[in-house]
């Protein structure tokens, strides 16, 4: 047990992970990537996970977000153990309460900036999809680029669209995987600022994986991943 999360679990914690183990089979036999990791993120709290490449950060992020299943252990999101849900159930939960920002932006190339932002609202069949998406796009300063496709946007602009997409459904949990990793430092700083401002406005918990110490320092808590083990800094 490497973290402080083992004490009282507040009901308000939107994300709790307990004793997460991840093993994969490789050419030289089974390999353990995560060794009994536990952590939690409280509402409105920003948690940074730092660590060297290959230490298991992205694997943990995937498991926390329900994109992958742990070999052992339990992840509880919004009070709901993810292990009780099948993949579609986890997807539904993500649609309701999770936002993502990826290093490689992951915008759909066939859709315009506005359409990319509209996607999460369309998936949950909400009303006034276009207006709401436009409002958020305006908040990230890209309303004038609404009809542009990702390929016509700069890296910074693409990531701003991705941030708008992550927040349009007002998530309670935000996962970010190296959100500034593909950007220059000035652009990266602007994205960080934008992401933190927007997170505050919806009071979402943030789990951030990064190499960037400065970015990690803007979080409430920092955890270090080393060889599949997590420790608080």
């Amino acid at each position: 047990m490497n973290t402080s999360a083992e004490s009282q679990t507040p009901v308000s914690s939107p994300l709790i992970a307990t004793d997460i183990v991840k093993r994969v089979s490789g050419p030289t036999g089974d390999m353990t990537i995560l060794h009994g990791v536990s952590m939690q993120a409280d509402a409105g709290e920003a948690v940074a996970i730092v660590g060297p490449s290959g230490s298991g950060k992205s694997t943990l992020l995937g498991i926390l977000a329900g994109l992958d299943s742990p070999t052992e252990g339990v992840v509880t999101m919004q009070g709901q153990p993810l292990t009780d849900l099948d993949e579609d159930g986890r997807a539904k939960l993500r649609a309701q309460s999770v936002g993502f920002v990826f290093q490689s932006f992951q915008l759909l190339p066939g859709l315009s900036a506005l359409e990319n932002v509209m996607l999460p609202l369309e998936l949950t069949q909400q009303d006034n999809v276009k207006e709401r998406a436009m409002t958020v796009l305006d908040e990230v300063g890209l309303s004038h680029r609404a009809s542009h496709h990702p390929l016509q946007l700069s890296g910074g602009e693409q990531q701003r669209v991705a941030v708008a997409r992550a927040f349009v459904s007002k998530p309670t949990l935000l996962f970010a995987d190296e959100p500034t990793g593909n950007l220059d430092s000035a652009t990266g700083d602007r994205i960080t600022e934008l992401m933190f401002d927007m997170r505050k406005s919806v009071n979402a918990a943030l789990v951030l994986v990064t190499h960037d110490d400065e970015l990690a320092a803007s979080c409430n808590r920092r955890l270090r991943m080393n060889d599949g083990r997590l420790s608080e800094l």
Binding site: L67, A91, A95, Q106, L119, L123
Partner: peptide, 10 residues
Amino acid sequence: VLRTLGASRE
């Protein structure tokens, strides 16, 4: 990406 954003496999 769509499934990450919450779409079901079906």
